[in-house]
């Protein structure tokens, strides 16, 4: 009954895992997770925690750090994601089409109807997460990935569905452009790339607040959702 393990072959993997675990433990034993370190005068995190709401208008200071203080890094992250997706698309589309021997069992009516009913709700939840990035946990990356996982469900249930790669690429490019465009607006008006020029608009805690942060997060959400969907659709094969 039980699967028999072949321990000898796995010894290097186990040793490597132990080594990594020991290193991580050694490196982080001093950090003290969960302890409050905000009482230190002049520390960076202290400054972010106490000032970010007034400076950026965002109640969620993780978002304030990701999109405002470290906005340029985020642009880099989005670019890395784009490069990964594009590279994978290039590799997968160059491969010969896989064999079609293993035809999956077609889904039953209950599954298809259920997916058709649930998918809009999942996409709505993803949009909720990225629209509320500056108020509640989550943001563009999380919301985009939630949308992608909904479309992934659709792709698994309807294997013959051809992902609209052109529309995905278009929305991805437009979202990326609008992110960079918002940055350039900041450069033109405030003199700093990605400067939050209208941060005074609205009061903190409302939906319309935090200036450009929600707009940037909406762009990131659409971009990540489109990228992830395209990536998985290409991985599935078919029309890649």
């Amino acid at each position: 009954m039980m699967e028999r393990y072949d321990i000898h072959r796995s010894i290097p993997a186990i040793l490597l895992a132990l080594l990594v675990a020991a290193t991580i433990f050694y490196a982080f034993v001093e950090v003290g997770f969960g302890e409050a370190k905000v009482d230190e005068e002049g520390s960076v995190s202290n400054r972010f925690i106490s000032n970010s709401t007034q400076e950026t208008g965002s109640s969620n200071f993780v978002t304030a750090v990701v999109v405002n203080y470290r906005g340029f890094d985020t642009l880099g992250e989005v670019t890395v994601l784009f490069l990964a997706s594009a590279g994978m698309g290039a590799i997968v589309s160059a491969l010969p089409a896989g064999d079609k021997r293993k035809r999956p069992i077609p889904p039953s009516l209950i599954l298809t109807a259920g997916t058709r009913l649930v998918l809009p709700l999942i996409i709505l939840f993803g949009s909720y997460v990225f629209v509320h990035g500056h108020l509640s946990p989550g943001g563009g990356f999380q919301g985009g990935v939630i949308i992608a996982s909904g479309l992934l469900l659709y792709l698994v249930i309807f294997p013959e569905w051809k992902a609209p790669h052109k529309a995905l690429a278009l929305s991805e490019s437009l979202a990326g452009l609008s992110f960079a465009g918002i940055g350039i607006i900041g450069l033109a008006v405030g003199g700093i790339f990605l400067d939050n020029v209208i941060s005074g608009l609205g009061e903190a805690g409302m939906l319309v607040s935090a200036g450009l942060i929600p707009l940037i997060y909406i762009a990131i959400g659409i971009k990540v959702g489109a990228e992830m969907t395209g990536l998985v659709a290409r991985m599935k094969g078919g029309d890649a």
Binding site: F33, N60, V129, Q142, V145
Partner: peptide
């Protein structure tokens, strides 16, 4: 650990 942002990303 009170990091809901990371938790959402990790879950999905």
């Amino acid at each position: 650990l009170r990091a809901p942002d990371v938790a959402m990303a990790e879950a999905s």
